[in-house]
Design a protein around this nucleic acid. Structure first.
Lengths: 341, 341
DNA sequence: ACAGGAAATGTTAACGATAACATAAACGAG
DNA sequence: CTCGTTTATGTTATCGTTAACATTTCCTGT
């Protein structure tokens, strides 16, 4: 509730100190669970604080101690289960150390990312995690100057800013193409991958093209599917487009499981057998790919694992256990399900 | 990058002032885009700041001005498209005013929520948004004492703490039951709704029971489906359980579209026609329900709208345009799709 | 009974910005 | 050319906590 009492100022440590008959410093120690405060004193202080309605002021603490307990994180979109899982893994790994996540989204736009990074750095986080390896020049400069650990994730950038926890999107798709070719498919299409925005999607498409060419196959069956994030609906639309324009296509690899599922539903609506008449592959190992009928062949980048590894790395760097820049390549394995066999 | 230079202190406004030949106060004004600073001076200051690698310190600013520009938000889980949409709507509505979201998740646990609220309040947010209307006594006290706008969402609590932007989960499900009954279904089951944790799920189940009883129908076909959030997999398992134990069931209402879709896939795997042999309803209007085959009948709580409305309310309260506590009941309409007809 | 040291608490100043107030420069009207 | 305003900038003190150092109290062993 907004308070309707005469607006008296909220209590500070000094008020708690006065109420308990100790110095503000002792109150500070009590709140920090400093062992040098006797149990009796600490209990009295905490009880008085609760009684007064005192709430610790993290801002003042931060300014004096130069410790914010923030870890900044940028993700393209909050509404994406993969990135949400990464944030979940990060959050769990950091919370035992009292580190809180300061989250922002870039909407798949590196200009927006630059603005966001600047905003986040103003809060003086103790580390910053960014999704992807493509940034504006100024964003790179901001991150490089920040004097805190920088971790790029979900990618293996050619010239990392600091640390990396990621995988090669292109290589992962290459593995999937190899699988489709081994299964006998030749006329394979790719859905998604916007060059201007979704850098990971673009990498996946480039991986597709390279792999197809390596097999001596036609790598021109490429269906753009709108701006990222590509929805299930857009996957369905892309499949409709594909069936209309390249009806002899035997298999399609989609930039994500979501678009792959959309494509699958379009086949279901048209009575096209999957995988009989059309094989489908996705990316991301979303829950839907595991449970839909048929199950979707996909790539598992282990998003939660990326978050967990990143959290562990941050703690190691902050503890001084990790000195040089780390490049942690996480596996992104192929999961073969019924949609491709 | 972790800096490898001799660890010299990062520049402050005083350094920028020195470099530009003005006072720190003028630098402060320049960064605040205060009109009283001449254009030439401001440009010189901002350029010098960029050159020095100065980054505005939001912590110090906050302490002095008592403005954090934070809005705290608690959601049960980050990995839920509905709550993510609400946060997205909130974020978009607040960012034009420079308000940043400080997000935390409770993991569907009100004890965890209490801890989280305490943590968040320490950061002195300018408003706090919580999901749901059930809290621990201490959490209610903390929120009530905080002297900032408190908004409960996704529910219509009997005794609101402050403002409310929500809808009745029970009433929404009642509307769905009415629809199923009108379609001729009588033996209707309910999947999900954990009493201890997911309060919204529980409300939905209670709404189901009340509505069934109002129609004079058997309201005991209740399948628990594990701890929230209930996954697609658990929806499928629940459907398997239902088919094994109550094989004459004609229709099932699920606590969410995700579990409903899982239930649907189980029918698909068993060759059970939906809606012919089994009708299905969900909740939440997730994208999957709109695109899967058949489309899922569902309730649309307009999660993004909840976020947008909440953002607008926060701005009104902060501007003093809204004085008393507001209770905004948003619509949560039935969307009928092929899974129930 | 007392030195020596550990345990518990206190004092002072500082973190980096800005609110509030004060002042200097520029300008227009009479 | 003077006065009253407006515009642009400066000075001082402060937000609430805690690092660093200082002091007191209480044991423990001999």
């Amino acid at each position: 509730m907004t308070n309707r009492l005469p607006p008296r100022k909220p209590p500070t440590m000094a008020d708690v100190a006065l109420a308990t008959g100790v110095s503000p410093m002792t109150v500070s120690r009590a709140f920090k669970r400093d062992a040098s405060v006797s149990d009796a004193t600490r209990d009295a202080i905490l009880q008085a604080a609760e009684g007064l309605g005192y709430v610790f002021d993290a801002t003042a603490s931060t300014l004096r101690s130069q410790k914010t307990s923030f870890v900044a994180v940028t993700i393209p979109s909050i509404n994406n289960a993969n990135f949400a899982d990464t944030v979940g893994g990060l959050s769990d790994g950091l919370k035992e150390r009292g580190l809180q996540i300061l989250l922002g989204y870039t909407n798949y736009d590196i200009i927006e990312e630059e603005r966001l990074i600047e905003q986040l750095l103003r809060r003086r986080p103790e580390a910053i995690v960014v999704t992807g390896g493509k940034h504006t020049e100024r964003a790179r400069r901001l991150l490089g100057n920040a004097a805190i650990p920088v971790i790029e994730t979900w990618d293996l950038p050619r010239a990392p800013i600091g640390h990396v926890v990621g995988f090669s999107n292109a290589a992962a798709v290459r593995g999937m193409v190899d699988h489709f070719v081994a299964m006998g498919y030749r006329r394979i299409a790719f859905i998604g991958g916007d060059a201007d925005r979704d850098t990971r999607g673009t990498d996946r498409r480039l991986g597709f093209i390279a792999a197809m060419q390596a097999h001596g196959l036609d790598a021109t069956r490429l269906i753009a599917a709108g701006v990222p994030p590509i929805s299930m609906r857009e996957g369905a639309d892309a499949m409709a487009h594909l069936l209309a324009h390249l009806p002899d296509t035997e298999a399609v690899i989609c930039v994500s499981d979501l678009s792959a599922f959309g494509a699958l539903t379009e086949c279901q609506r048209r009575g096209i057998a999957v995988p009989g008449q059309m094989a489908i592959g996705g990316f991301g190992n979303y829950e839907i790919g595991a449970i839909c009928v048929p199950g979707l062949t996909t790539i598992n980048p282990d998003p939660r694992g990326i978050g967990a590894r990143t959290a562990a790395l941050i703690l190691d760097v902050l503890d001084g256990k990790q000195t040089g820049p780390a490049v942690i390549a996480v596996p992104a394995d192929l999961i073969v399900r019924h949609s491709s066999r």
